[in-house]
Amino acid sequence: MAKVELIVNGQSVEKEVEDRTLLAQFLRDTLQLTGTHVGCDTSSCGACTILVDGKAVKSCTILAVQADGSHIKTIEGMATNGALHPLQEGFKEEHGLQCGFCTPGMIMTAADLLSHNNDPSEQEIREALEGNFCRCTGYHNIVRSIQHAAKKIRSGEAAVSA
């Protein structure tokens, strides 16, 4: 067993876990943050993407204990005081989600992208999403959702909180 201390969505957490516990499992099973999903076992689909110290990471491919001491942000931490993050708003406005399963990972990956490029081209968005699978939307509206969020961020209405 190993002790893990993290800041998750701004809250300190301290737990004992088995050494082999993956961060995705830790978030889902130990912290009940079930917004982070697991869609594959080969580090491919990106449904489990979260931000570790501001960077998009596949939480199924990192041990909880490896992340000890990190700042973690999950989909549950994206809205602030009940106000949706521009990406969450973009996905709603542009119908960027259907079944919702890939959505948290998509949003977290997009948050990483927009944190260093707030005016990405369609091609840049599509390339940034290469590690996230969606089976419902054909990606068309996901691209528009991210463009929507980027525009809102550029207009200064909201800061990127990645």
């Binding site: 580090s43 990106g46 993407t49 960077k55 998009a56 990471v57 596949k58 491919t61 990192i62 990956t109 990483d112 992208l113 940034a128 290469e130 590690g131 996230n132």
Partner: peptide, 9 residues
């Protein structure tokens, strides 16, 4: 290499 998430780690 890989994708954004893989390259980050």
């Amino acid at each position: 290499i890989g994708d954004v998430q893989v390259r980050n780690v």
